[in-house]
C-alpha cells in the first residue's frame, strides 16, 4: 500500500503557539507543551549551576531552569535577544529519563529538593502567544528535512515579524540541552 504524506497541512484548524522572536527568525513553540510563564526574576536565582542551567526558588522547592535562549542562539545561530527574559514552565515531561538523571544529579549536588514535575526554560522577554492556522506551516524541503528534524525543527512558517518561523520540537531541544549539560559535568 502506498502512503501519501501531504507536504502541507490541509486541515483547516488552528493551534496556539508561543512565538519567541530573534533577529533572523521566530521560534514557534506549541502551547500545549507549556503550563505557564513568568517574568525572570534574578533575585529568585538560588544558584547558577552552569551557564546553561539555573536553579530558581519556587515556594519550598527549587525549579531547574535551562537557558534555552543561550542554547538556541548558539546552536541555531540565531542572533539577538535583548531586554528581560521570561521563564516558560513546561509540562508532560514525565517520559524523559535524562531529565530525571539531571534532577538526581542536581539534588545530590545541592542537597535539596528539586521540582520533578516541571522544568523551566529561559527565553527572551519578547515572547507572545499567537493562534496560527496549521495550513500556514510547511515541512522543510525534503533534502534538508531529516537534518532539521534531527536538530529539532519540525516545520517552517513564512510570515510573522521575521519573515520565517521555525516550529520546534521542544522535547528534542530540551534533550539536547540536558545532554550538553550532563556531558559538561562528567
Amino acid at each position: 500500500m502506498t502512503s501519501f504524506m501531504p507536504e502541507k497541512a490541509t486541515v483547516d484548524s488552528l493551534a496556539d503557539f508561543i512565538v519567541a522572536s530573534y533577529a533572523d527568525a521566530d521560534l514557534l513553540i506549541n502551547c500545549s507543551e507549556i503550563q505557564s510563564s513568568q517574568v525572570f526574576d534574578p533575585e529568585a536565582v538560588f544558584s547558577e549551576v552552569s551557564r546553561n542551567l539555573l536553579l530558581l526558588r519556587e515556594n519550598n522547592k527549587l525549579l531547574a531552569v535551562l537557558n534555552t535562549d543561550a542554547f538556541v542562539q548558539a546552536e541555531f545561530s540565531l542572533k539577538g535577544s535583548l531586554g528581560e527574559s521570561v521563564i516558560l514552565i513546561t509540562k508532560n515531561l514525565e517520559d524523559m529519563p535524562s531529565l530525571s538523571n539531571l534532577i538526581s544529579y542536581l539534588e545530590g549536588k545541592e542537597e535539596t529538593v528539586i521540582n520533578r514535575d516541571n522544568l523551566g526554560l529561559k527565553l527572551p522577554g519578547n515572547i507572545h502567544r499567537r493562534e496560527l492556522a496549521l495550513e500556514t506551516l510547511s515541512f522543510p524541503p525534503p533534502l534538508i528535512r531529516p537534518l532539521l528534524q534531527a536538530k529539532g525543527i519540525l516545520a517552517l512558517r513564512f510570515g510573522g515579524e521575521r519573515g520565517i518561523g521555525f516550529f520546534v520540537d521542544l522535547k528534542k531541544i530540551i534533550l539536547q540541552q540536558i545532554s550538553q549539560i550532563l556531558s559538561e559535568t562528567d
Binding site: 507536504e7 502541507k8 541555531f76 545561530s77 540565531l78 510547511s138 524541503p141 534538508i144 532539521l148 536538530k151
Partner: peptide
C-alpha cells in the same frame, strides 16, 4: 530566509507559493 544547520553553500530558503525551497 535564514536557515540554521545547513552547509554554507545553502544560502537560505525562498518562499515559492508558500513552499520552502533551499
Amino acid at each position: 530566509y535564514f536557515i540554521p544547520f545547513v552547509p554554507p553553500y545553502i544560502r537560505g530558503l525562498i518562499n515559492r507559493h508558500g513552499d520552502p525551497f533551499a
